[in-house]
Design a protein around this nucleic acid. Sequence first.
DNA 1: TTTTGATATTTAACATGTTAAATAGTTTTT
DNA 2: AAAAACTATTTAACATGTTAAATATCAAAA
Lengths: 142, 142
Amino acid sequence: MLQSTRRSLPMSLLRAREVVMAQFRPILAQHGVSEQQWRVIRVLGEQSPLDATELAERASILAPSLTRIIKALEERKLITRGKVDGDGRRVMLAIAPKGQVLISEVAPESSAIYDEVQRRIGHERYEQLLDLLEGLIDLEKK
Amino acid sequence: MLQSTRRSLPMSLLRAREVVMAQFRPILAQHGVSEQQWRVIRVLGEQSPLDATELAERASILAPSLTRIIKALEERKLITRGKVDGDGRRVMLAIAPKGQVLISEVAPESSAIYDEVQRRIGHERYEQLLDLLEGLIDLEKK
DNA sequence: TTTTGATATTTAACATGTTAAATAGTTTTT
DNA sequence: AAAAACTATTTAACATGTTAAATATCAAAA
């Protein structure tokens, strides 16, 4: 039998994400970046430079989308794009000064929201949820 | 401080969903429906008719997307679309015979996948995960 | 070395997500 | 009843998701 749409895992994951992102989106909009652009910037803020494949993997963005996002962010000088010597296929991306500034502006507001969500759901349950999700994600690799 | 992108709730929710849907997508593709089209069909399979607003809510699809999806599904005669007498604004959607057939074809394969995921993650953890997600979703309403 | 095969990125085409605005119909106010 | 406010759906515009194919480059095999 089909599961009820109410207690379907993919749908619950979708809705849960929607609830969290709804808190978040207005802040990103204020700073003129989409959710996906922000993911790219954040990943590069953690580690630069990264080649496109690594970046796509870490930001959970498919290659074709990444191509477009890179173009937009590079035009705004939020990231930089360079070639790898020794491998003409690959592209190296790095956070740019303007990107660093953006991160430092968004970071406090971002943290406040995460803290609020965590507080409302409960510290322990929050960690438990992350653990369970991690377990689900790891199924892919086995 | 910014959270690590590895242990970020929105990203974990996104990745977890991706892992589950990766199992699922090939089956839907075989039957020529997208993930979102399948959600619409499934919801209408549970209850028909529904007006567009209710349907959008239950399938977690935004109104503009639903408009396009309805058009596509109606053309393929998987669903039917009718007007409400007494309120000329609203549109009523219902599952069509072809849609029922599709559901009965996809259902067993769908169940098999859910069972497999549930088995691999563990029954108890699976239920626990759904409960935690539900708790997160309910934050919206408070 | 030339061919073959594999890899990284981009392009293409179409569906959906997202926000804002338009349209049409309904309800409430005055 | 006419105007104003509200509601349901659609349209518009642009970004992203998704799959397949095209390009360009590198690596391995013959």
